[in-house]
Amino acid sequence: MNHEVAIRAEGLTRKFGAFTAVDHISFSVEKGEIFGFLGANGAGKTTAIKMLCGLLQPSGGKASVGGFDIFRQTGQLRRNIGYMSQRFSLYEDLSPYENLRFYGGIYGLPRREIKPKAEAVLKKLGLWEEKDQLVSALPLGWKQKLAFSVASFHEPAIVFLDEPTSGVDPVTRRQFWHMIYEAAHQGTTIFITTHYMEEAEYCKRVSIMVSGRIQALDTPGKLKEQYQVSSMDEVFLKLTR
């Protein structure tokens, strides 16, 4: 494994009026790593992700994603990232195929490449039979798998996933993580937030955010050792209580 840095944040801060949502967080994520970004609801995870994706202007600090500054190089940054937001972000009144084609087109993929590529994705997802149904008719788990495929359709170097598996059944969640591992294996850096602590165990390293600050950052194994507990659940409870 090489040690190129995919994401680096130094003192990244975001304030909303008097409230500091993200308070001087610093960390770095290696290329090809699966990085778990944990924290209770309202800890500032989504705000941090939005800043790293160029969706929200930081109030202070520095950060670079894929080597591009999040303040000044948002154009190049966007070409290199994929983002799956916490809110469901596919077009429900389009079919899975139309969603893939649309985002492929928006990212400027050549027209002749879009069709075979979208078809390959749909077959792999097991959505081939449903490719012309409207997305609104699909079960949540399938929608989430499709959303991940849409976010990575243009083959970004880094993919941000904001609670991609919440509300998804355990079987589909396992399939979802299978997709994540596959992407990471191909060199994609994965930055993921989750509330399921067994999922945290799947990450190479995790950070735990409490009230806008990163309170712990290490591999799941080392964190458990450090807090002398047997599961990530207990680590999380110890830190956030």
Binding site: S85, R87, L90
Partner: peptide, 13 residues
Amino acid sequence: EIGTIEQLNVTTM
């Protein structure tokens, strides 16, 4: 309102 604007805003559009 439905949230798709964010998905568009992260693209290179």
